[in-house]
Structures are given as structure tokens and as C-alpha cells.
């Protein structure tokens, strides 16, 4: 839930999603769901000369399970807030 919330705060920001098939796609984050499926707009594929497969694709839906990394805009991530929220969530889990 925590990570889902983080992604929600990053909607309309530019991110780079790296997939487990080594494709790397940069675009504007339009939405995310609880599976961390991602909708990207205005996409660019890294090294398009080698990966022309998505030349005519301008926006896409990426399945959360195939994501390896997402590069985030550091200036839009409040690390102190993240750490506090992570500690709170860990404490809440411990009580169950």
C-alpha cells in the first residue's frame, strides 16, 4: 500500500520503467493501481534504433509483474516522509 501511495504522488511526473525483458521506457506517469500496473503517456523507448517495435506507440499500460526498476524523479520524492511512513507501516504490521 505504501509503495502504491508513493507512485500516486508521482502522477504526471516523468519516470523511466525498466522491464524484465531489458526494455527501458521513459514517459509521463498517468496512473498506477494496487498491482503496480502502470500507465505511461508520451513514451520513448531507450535505444529506439534497436527497438523499433514500439515506434507508433504513444501511450501504454505496463503490467506491474514485469517491472524490474522504476527510475523516479528524486526532486519529487520526500525521503524523510518515506522513511516515517515505512516505519509506521512496519509498526502497524507488527501489531497484527
Amino acid at each position: 500500500m505504501l509503495i502504491f501511495s508513493v507512485f500516486k504522488t508521482l502522477t504526471d511526473q516523468k519516470v523511466t520503467v525498466e522491464l524484465k525483458n531489458d526494455l527501458s521506457i521513459t514517459g509521463v506517469l498517468k496512473s498506477v493501481d494496487q498491482f503496480l500496473n502502470i500507465r505511461l503517456d508520451k513514451i520513448e523507448v531507450f535505444d529506439e534504433a534497436r527497438h523499433p517495435h514500439m515506434m507508433a506507440v504513444k501511450n501504454c499500460f505496463i503490467r506491474g509483474s514485469v517491472v524490474r526498476y522504476v527510475q523516479l524523479p528524486a526532486e519529487h520524492v520526500d525521503t524523510q516522509l518515506l522513511e516515517d511512513a515505512t516505519r509506521r507501516e512496519a509498526a502497524a504490521q507488527g501489531k497484527r
Partner: peptide, 19 residues
């Protein structure tokens, strides 16, 4: 099947035709 899908992209018709 959904679990076989990596990515779904919307094709831009004009761009499609130019390739």
C-alpha cells in the same frame, strides 16, 4: 491471457501508416 502480457500500447494510426 492477462498473465502473458508485458505491455499494451495504443497505436497512433498516422505514425503506423508512415512506417
Amino acid at each position: 491471457k492477462g498473465d502473458q502480457i508485458v505491455l499494451i500500447g495504443e497505436l497512433d494510426e498516422a505514425l503506423e501508416q508512415s512506417v
